[in-house]
Write a protein that binds this DNA or RNA. Structure first.
Length: 204
DNA sequence: AGCCGGATCCGCT
DNA sequence: GCGGATCCGGCTT
């Protein structure tokens, strides 16, 4: 369960990225400004910008110095539907509100400047961030990750990661996990290389 | 200084 | 099912 910003989501699909040895990981070529949070302490949000218009979020899972993270690919909105619908105006159904990593971020109001945010999962009270007078669930309350209802092991499925090019997208890295039969799980798509537009000669 | 491709989404066919 | 949108990070020159 990911709470905050007035919406709560039950995670239904994730992908694991296992540090610098993983060819599909942003950390594969070492630490950079963008992926620096991955190398930091666990329980923080790693948020990145992609395709010129989308943001996606990961939870850092490894001790400081390593760079393992879990990409939040999809979830089921379980509270704050109205607010989530307002943020996701193009969504045609509630199952689509957080179906896909960029959609999930929009539904939860996660932005690029949430990169590095402490999710408060280490049992620590968190950075002086009490729910506040507005109360939990109010817009602006801080993001936090909490255990949800246990999922029956028989319902958990595992397969290749979506949208990852090259070696990292192969069946050798079956580190996508999802809940069987959950409508919010995003459809699997193998990576399709983008053909870039032919160069246009512009008159001067 | 430039280029290339990307852990995607949406609308149209 | 397919292509366009749209721009930044990271690597090459």
């Amino acid at each position: 369960m990911l709470h905050g910003r007035g919406v709560a989501v039950r995670l239904t699909e994730v992908e694991a990225y296992l540090g610098e040895r993983d060819p599909g990981s942003h950390a594969f070529r070492g630490r950079t400004r963008r992926n620096a949070v991955m190398f930091g302490p666990p329980g923080r949000l790693y948020v990145y910008f992609t395709y010129g218009m989308h943001v996606c979020a990961n939870v850092v899972c490894s001790p400081e110095g390593e760079a393992t993270a879990v990409l939040l690919r999809a979830g089921e909105v379980v509270a704050g539907h109205e607010l989530a619908r307002r943020r996701r105006t193009t969504s045609r159904s509630d199952a689509d509100l957080a179906r896909g990593p960029a959609r999930l971020c929009v539904a939860l109001g996660i932005r690029l400047d949430d990169d590095g945010a402490d999710l408060g999962i280490a049992g620590e009270p968190g950075p002086s961030g009490e729910p506040g007078p507005s109360g939990a669930g109010a817009p602006g309350d801080r993001l936090r990750l909490e255990p949800g209802e246990p999922v029956a092991p028989a319902r958990i499925r595992q397969g290749p990661r979506t949208g990852v090019s090259g070696e990292g997208g192969s069946a050798a890295y079956p580190w996508r996990f999802w809940i069987e039969g959950q409508p919010s799980v995003s459809p699997y798509r193998a990576h399709t290389p983008r053909r870039r537009p032919a160069a246009v000669r512009r008159p001067s």
